[in-house]
Design a protein around this nucleic acid. Structure first.
Length: 589
RNA sequence: GGAGGCGUGGUGUAGCUGGUCUAACAUAUGUGCCUGUCACGCACAAGAUCGCGGGUUCGAAUCCCGUCGCCUCCGCCA
């Protein structure tokens, strides 16, 4: 017997046909004289009806239990009108089995496969992921991811991109995230690293003349996890030769359009753009959530002559006073205001000033420092109406912007300004090439050290390095960084200047990236590309609460896999082969 | 590394201002009944020493401390 149909495919077109189905017992309803079994596969389920007039099949039906695996030969029949179940796609028909074989029995499932809305503990779900993945919601997520991935492959193939695989065992590189290391058996004391991204290899492929490359690439970063972060994750990684940023963005938008279409999501007619400076100024974030407005406003001028010391000091020290107006929040309780203040200080602000505009005037702990005219200027400048709450932060932009950005997000949540079904894409461009790392007390690359500076800023590279803008672009969706890319440096001399700026000596550069610098001496084309987080994209398209929902076998927040119990202890013999020695047990620090 | 939350039959929850809690409910499971259900129904049964360790108390699921696991956030993630 060979399967003829998937369960979920059956409908009125098959009425009268004899079909062979394979699937799992989704539910069994035993009425004594008649037994119904919902037979499920990845396509959905269809009802089997067993009557005593077919004693052989009926006897088997009697022994069936949830999640048994069956092979069924039977006839598709139309249901009487009053028996149609409009809730399922196959509800107009049912299958009358002539022959039923139990291919596998099943113990009672720890994961309720048929109970759709049962929230099951995530560890249990991960421990028995193969059962969890049988649940229709998870099947749909796997299918969605598949469709999106295939749409991307098709599109990039159409655009002339070649899919090339790059090594998973490579070398550790400085900068960036912590590497996962793999000890070498053959060369004692040496280690491979799992790639944080195929960055260097795709650049080498450009030098090789591949011209257009892509890869659905697994990446590894040994950093702490989040709802949208896993230690291994998948990027749609692409690179092209001789591009402008416009070319990369155009390809990305085309790819995204296909991905959205494949997911049944509306495709935006265009994707707006913000420079990094504008994003920070208006939204306090380099990945602004544009599903809601709530913009930051500069009120420095309005408070310039007030008598509030904190503001005056901030202004004198080159800072500004900026604020956000929260509509309708003038009635905020002391507790709510404390929470917002706590949020602001935790984000780095010295404090948070607030003014509640009401019909009887202004309620604020700092109102006494302002004349009525100044208060009116503030209200006007902040566009606040009666009933609104104005939150003010006074500090250098570097400190104040992220604080205001945090507040903006928090206010949007509290005011429920975030439309749940909106998809707000935005490009953020012109990132600073470098930033100052307080901890390491040196300049570091904001994106990565291979990012090209803008031509017109080149002259300022050594004199005003923090003012130099990069030819970089990030794609943001709903406040989540979906991906980022840049035009790369392809000239060895410029690459060496950048390495020097971030404090990497020529010797170190030669040691760590010598192969790349050498490649650039052999005719490197100008090139650039982008990498998109596939898991995040699918997560957002699938309205999933975490990235784990769209990964077949994800890790927990501590990086464990409850199913395989990785990471696990290995034998002394294995360690010896790898020339590794662990500290005595009990001395783990 | 830091902060917060959660942990009770297979699963999901209630109980958690200490004492008929000898732990309840739903669901799943087992048995029986039932010929049109589709989250089938009805009846009966079995199933948890309340994550683990310690402490307080005459008495702890309940209070305290520690610890483990999970989740969220901050740091970190070029």
């Amino acid at each position: 017997m060979r399967r003829t149909h998937y369960c979920g495919e059956l409908g009125l077109q098959q009425v009268g046909d004899e079909v062979v189905l394979n699937g799992w017992v989704h539910r069994r309803r035993d009425h004594g004289g008649v037994i119904f079994v919902d037979l499920r596969d990845r396509s959905g389920w269809v009802q089997l009806v067993f009557n005593p007039d077919r004693p052989e099949a009926f006897r088997v039906a009697d022994t069936l239990r949830s999640e048994y695996v069956l092979e069924v030969r039977g006839r598709v029949v139309e249901r009487a009108p009053e028996l149609v179940n409009p809730k399922i796609p196959t509800g107009a028909v049912e299958v009358v089995p002539r022959e039923v074989t139990v291919l596998a029995q099943a113990e009672p499932s720890p994961v309720p496969v048929a109970e759709e809305d049962e929230e099951v503990d995530e560890v249990v779900r991960l421990r028995y992921r193969y059962l969890d993945l049988r649940r229709p919601a998870m099947v749909e997520r796997l299918a969605l991811r598949h469709r999106v991935t295939q749409a991307i492959r098709r599109y990039l193939d159409d655009q002339g991109f070649w899919e090339v695989e790059t090594p998973m065992l490579t070398r550790s590189t400085p900068e960036g995230a912590r590497d996962f290391l793999v000890p070498s058996r053959v060369t004692p004391g040496r280690f491979y690293a799992l790639p944080q991204s195929p960055q260097l290899f795709k650049q080498l492929l450009m030098v090789a003349g591949v011209d257009r490359y892509y890869q659905i690439a697994r990446c590894f970063r040994d950093e702490d996890l989040r709802a949208d972060r896993q230690p291994e994750f998948t990027q749609v990684d692409l690179e092209m030769s001789f591009p402008d940023p416009e070319d990369v963005m155009a390809v990305t938008e085309g790819l995204l359009g296909e991905a959205l279409r494949s997911a049944g999501a509306p495709v935006p007619p265009y994707i707006p753009r913000l420079t990094w400076a504008e994003a920070m100024e208006r939204f306090g974030s380099d990945k602004p959530d544009l599903r809601f407005a709530l913009e930051i406003r500069d009120l420095s001028a309005a408070v310039a002559d007030c008598s509030f010391g904190v503001f005056r000091t901030a202004l004198e020290r080159g800072g500004r006073v900026r604020g956000i107006t929260a509509p309708g929040l003038a009635g905020a309780t002391r507790r709510e205001l404390e929470e917002l203040t706590e949020l602001a200080t935790a984000a780095g602000a010295g404090g948070l000033a607030w003014l509640a505009f009401g019909p009887e005037g202004v309620r604020s702990p700092v109102a006494k420092f302002f004349t009525p005219e100044q208060l009116e200027r503030l209200r006007e400048g902040s566009r606040a109406n009666s009933g609104d709450l104005l939150l003010l932060v006074a500090d250098r932009d570097q400190v104040a912007s992220p604080v205001l950005g945090r507040l903006r997000g928090e206010l949007a949540r509290r005011l429920e300004l975030v439309p749940s079904d909106a998809m707000a894409f935005v490009w953020v461009t012109d990132f600073p090439l470098l930033e100052y790392d307080q901890e390491e007390r040196r300049l570091v690359a904001m994106h990565h050290p291979f990012t090209a500076p803008r031509e017109e800023d080149l002259a300022r590279l050594e004199t005003e390095p923090l003012a130099v803008r990069a030819r970089a672009y990030d794609l943001v969706l709903n406040g989540v960084e979906l991906g980022g890319g840049s035009i790369r440096i392809h000239r060895p001399d410029l690459q060496r200047r950048i390495f020097a700026l971030i404090g990497m000596s020529p010797a170190e550069a030669a040691d760590k990236f010598g192969f790349l610098l050498e490649a650039f001496r052999h005719g490197a084309p100008p090139h650039g590309g982008i990498a998109l987080g596939l898991d995040r994209l699918v997560m957002l398209l699938g309205k999933a609460a975490s990235i784990r929902e769209v990964i077949a076998f994800p890790k927990t927040a501590r990086g464990n896999c409850p199913l395989t119990e990785a990471p696990a202890v290995v034998s002394q013999a294995q360690l010896r082969e790898l020339h590794l020695k662990l500290p005595e047990p009990g001395r783990r620090s």
